[in-house]
């Protein structure tokens, strides 16, 4: 990076190599920043996934669809009801949190959770089909452009041209995760939520309103999904089938980071985002998806509790 600016017309082979290396470095940094941006979005989805898993043993296979749908709802608000974008975003977000946060918990999770983890996980697969097909049948089967809340264009930082949008996404996601972290570790309600996640039985004995805390995590999960949806849709367009890839990546991020840790989901999301971005740039695009999956298998084999996870004691 510290190479002094060299004329493009440099004659000797050595100079040409340096120019190429310099350009290569700038490119590499841009790919990493792009990867961090998508990774931060995966992290939002993965954190919600982990929270819900921790407090209620719900494996949400519809997590990708959770990130897909809010953008569709917002666009539907604009095109069907003629709302201005900000109002559609507010309304769409609230409707989503009410239906797919609270409603999902009451209608699907509560009646099923007594019967074990698996039937509920399968039910979320059915929910994913409903959300995906609903978006396709009632809105559009085409990819729709979604307005970016951030200015377009690029900024030059240390000679590297970076997309404003990527930087803004990273900033917003980190602020959101920072607020969440503050809430969980510094407020009374947040600590009650954490206690519920760690041991619901003991939390109940200590007088913590466990049911309300579980409900809160479902609402937070839905809210994080709305944020992720608004951030990701300007990049990838809003399409009914977006959930498949996003869900897979959120799942990988949660496992790579550590299935039982919020900070693990953040780290996992960023790593998976960067790995995917670099794989797309430097490895064949047809096997792009294989690289994060190989990472997943590698982590399971050498550090099964995840990179940032705590080793779980074996229960008897």
């Amino acid at each position: 990076m510290s190479t002094p600016a060299i004329s493009q017309r440099a004659a000797t082979a050595t100079h040409r190599t340096i120019v190429r290396t310099h350009a290569g470095m700038a490119e590499l940094v841009a790919y990493i920043v792009a990867g961090l941006a998508t990774g931060a979005i995966y992290a939002l989805a993965a954190i919600g996934f982990t929270l819900v898993w921790q407090t209620s043993q719900t494996i949400n296979f519809a997590q990708g669809e959770y990130v897909m749908l809010p953008a569709i709802l917002i666009l539907a608000g604009v095109s069907f009801f003629g709302l201005p974008l900000w109002a559609a975003a507010l309304l769409g977000g609230l409707v989503f949190v009410a239906v797919f946060g609270a409603g999902f918990k009451i209608a699907v999770v509560d009646p099923m959770i007594r019967h074990g983890v698996l039937p509920l996980a399968i039910a979320t697969m059915a929910l994913a089909i409903i959300m995906k097909e609903g978006a396709k049948d009632f809105f559009s089967s085409e990819a729709q452009t979604f307005p970016s809340p951030f200015p377009a264009g690029a900024v030059d930082i240390l000679g590297v041209s970076l997309s404003m949008q990527h930087i803004a996404i990273i900033a917003v996601a980190f602020i959101a995760i920072g607020i969440l972290q503050w809430f969980v570790s510094r407020t009374r309600t947040g600590r009650q939520m954490q206690a519920t996640a760690q041991n619901p039985g003991v939390a109940l004995i200590l007088g913590i309103p466990v049911a309300r805390m579980v409900m809160l995590t479902f609402a937070i999960n839905a809210a994080l999904a709305v944020l992720a949806s608004v951030l990701v849709s300007p990049l990838y367009l809003a399409k009914f089938s977006n959930g498949e890839v996003i869900g897979l990546f959120a799942f990988i991020a949660a496992i790579v980071g550590g299935f039982n840790q919020v900070r693990g989901a953040l780290g996992g999301g960023l790593i998976v985002g960067v790995v995917d971005s670099l794989a797309a740039a430097y490895i064949s695009s047809s096997y792009r998806l294989a690289v994060p999956l190989a990472l997943l298998v590698l982590i399971i084999l050498i550090k099964p509790e995840g990179l940032f996870g705590r080793r779980e004691e074996r229960r008897i």
Binding site: P119, A123, A126, I129
Partner: peptide, 10 residues
């Protein structure tokens, strides 16, 4: 189909 399966599982 998704709705039927979801209701069935619930």
């Amino acid at each position: 189909f998704g709705v039927v399966v979801l209701l069935l599982l619930i």
